[in-house]
Design a protein around this nucleic acid. Structure first.
Lengths: 223, 223
DNA sequence: CCACAATACATAGCAACGCTATGCTTTGAT
DNA sequence: ATCAAAGCATAGCGTTGCTATGTATTGTGG
């Protein structure tokens, strides 16, 4: 019998070319369609199918890319001696990432967030879990605190904020609420209030996207 | 001179027929397209244009409908003598509504949530504000508490939870986190911890969608 | 060394999408 | 009763994602 023979090898450069272009089109708010995506790249529409199996696959890969960027961003947060500060810093990094690429962030969470490789998403949450465990070890949080539960709650706050700001309803300045909310949460986990606030504000820093805003609160000026 | 002559009047029944059908198709996860929407209704595709000005208008009306349902749901929450309990009850109602119509909820928040009539959305937030003011008046919250800020923070928690559960990543049981999170927030606003927990748990009741779950935590079983 | 089989990719065409142009029908004010 | 304006059905346009087909390319077995 004969073994199969190999043929042309897929060029990974084409894959990232399409992915980058899609991300950039998303950023500049151009509609990302099969034809507009490949237009000007020299490759044909079929490339999308050989590399991603279709547009759905492209979106999935784009979500993956979003989580990879997020993971990179969180990995850049330097771990300090103060685990509560670190938690706030991770939250701030999460929000900063979401607001630097709001469209990519939106893509990450619609379609039910199914990924090929959930490693990046897992790592994201696990990083929080580890900081919470350190906070417990240093006596800042109570022993009964379940790290995964508290991590999920922190994530909920971060995502709620990111989602409401990135999709429209709330103005950017609302991001400042992150600090008091995290302080409330961590205090309820056992941290001493004054010290907690100090740690959180230190880790949170200036609100992630502290810029002048363009949108009114809820009623939304009909701009 | 002559005034313009009137003609056939728009039939509001057709409008709600289309709206209801769209909501039902959303619920049963059938794709809502111009043609599938009008198929079987007897009306033609043009009806969508006369009543909504196009598919965009239909989605906008659908968002409106979502906010109306939410407002109705919140209005059904009975105000008690305990404003903190009421706040938790409003949060629970918010989540219950989001999880009864998850697809409608998703529609409400993508596309930047632009509405013709923001009254319903405003009313939603204002209901929280009023309860917070009552909590301040009865001495449960500190005087320095800004009702709108605290309302926004409560909303952020509710939306974060609803969004993460409705769009996939978190299992339904996560909704139970709502109570401790709100307790943490309201305690930080000045409420006495033990009493706060009692009030919140009373208002929150059984977690809104307390049912067996179908999805694993984050890694998501590849079902 | 070379022929072959498997893969990459361009081209063209398909069904379905949202939308608009057109004309018929209905209606209410004059 | 009349007639302009509005509702609405039909048909067709451009674009969407996708697939079928043909061509070019390349690693490997004989």
């Amino acid at each position: 019998m004969y073994c199969g023979a190999m043929a042309r090898t897929k060029d990974p450069a084409v894959r990232s070319l399409l992915l980058d272009r899609a991300a950039q089109m998303l950023r500049t708010r151009q509609p990302v369609t099969l034809r507009t995506l490949v237009a000007g790249t020299g490759v044909s529409t079929m490339a999308v199918y050989t590399y991603f199996g279709g547009m759905d696959g492209l979106w999935k890969a784009l979500r993956q890319e979003g989580f990879t960027r997020l993971a990179t961003r969180l990995a850049a947060v330097k771990i300090s001696a103060d685990p509560v500060r670190d938690l706030a810093a991770l939250g701030a990094a999460y929000l900063a990432n979401a607001l630097e690429n709001p469209d990519l962030y939106r893509v990450m969470f619609d379609a039910g967030f199914d990924l090929e490789d959930a490693g990046a998403a897992d790592e994201t949450l696990h990083r929080l879990v580890r900081s919470i465990e350190r906070a417990k070890a240093s006596g800042r949080f109570r022993d009964e605190v379940d790290p995964l539960e508290l991590a999920t709650q922190s994530w909920t706050i971060g995502h709620g904020l990111a989602s409401l700001v990135a999709t429209g309803p709330l103005p950017h300045q609302t991001l400042a609420h992150g600090a008091p909310m995290l302080t409330a949460l961590f205090t309820s986990a056992g941290d001493e209030p004054a010290r907690c606030r100090q740690s959180v504000e230190q880790g949170w820093g200036r609100p992630p996207g502290a810029v002048a805003d363009r949108r009114a609160v809820v009623r939304g000026d009909p701009a």
